[in-house]
Nucleic acid binder design. Structure first.
Length: 226
DNA sequence: GCGACAG
DNA sequence: ATCTTGTCGC
């Protein structure tokens, strides 16, 4: 089984960093996955100026990418946004949404960093260790690390390096659009993570999936109000 | 001290 | 993340 990893969520920033230091030892940074039948895209964000944390999860069959389930959850944010401590705002809402899914996923594709994090324990690692599920980070922007020039064509990638350590990859999922920052979450290697994100990229994009998950979960009243 | 800083 | 104006390229 998974090593147990539970902790409080009503913590100070200093306590949150200590929890991250403890959690990083539990991250499995290599491929330990079964065949993937369903992938969950996990998008996070906030509402009401940061007072409410929101999570939207869409489950797709893999590799067909046919949608099979979705859920959204909102929670009063018990933690401010602090760079490096995003999990403590968002993961409670994510866990709520995951519990409501009809079809459990085999992989979590997270909207945020994994190992590409100051303490090597970004949201993707944290969620992976908590659930025991394979996970990876696919962030829309950079938290830390440097990289060389990125060729313009789809599939091009460059290592993301922090303090002399490769912590992720910058991946061009489409020509002419901003790259994604891919990193290991849990039980997935970086090479596999890059390959998976590329396989999802043609029809799966985080912002679109978020809107779709909201529409599916909030019903026609909300959908027509937009 | 100054700038950077997932969502 | 979200909002708004100005600019560039197809």
């Amino acid at each position: 089984m998974q090593p147990p990893f539970t902790h409080r969520w009503d913590v100070t920033p200093a306590q949150a960093r200590l929890i991250q230091e403890a959690g990083r030892a539990l991250v499995v940074a290599e491929d330990r996955l079964d065949p993937i039948g369903r992938v969950a895209g996990v998008d996070v964000g906030f509402e009401q100026g940061g007072a409410v944390a929101r999570a939207a999860v869409a489950v797709l069959e893999f590799p067909s990418l046919a949608p099979v389930a979705s859920a959204v959850a909102r929670r009063p944010a018990a933690f401010p946004y602090v760079p490096g401590l995003l999990s403590f705002r968002e993961i409670p809402a994510i866990l709520d949404a995951l519990e409501r899914l009809d079809a459990p996923p085999d992989l979590l594709v997270c909207d945020g960093q994994g190992l590409a994090h100051p303490r090597r324990f970004g949201l993707a690692c944290h969620l992976g260790v908590l659930t025991g599920l394979p996970s990876l980070g696919a962030a829309k922007s950079r938290l830390l690390g440097e990289h060389g020039p990125l060729p313009p064509e789809r599939g091009a990638w460059a290592p993301l390096v922090d303090r002399g350590e490769t912590v992720g990859a910058v991946l061009r999922t489409r020509a002419g659009v901003a790259p994604l920052y891919v990193s290991i979450g849990h039980r997935v290697s970086l090479a596999r993570a890059v390959g998976l994100v590329l396989a999802l990229a043609p029809r799966y994009r985080l912002p679109e999936t978020t809107r779709r998950a909201h529409r599916l979960a909030s019903g026609p009243a909300d959908a027509t109000a937009r």
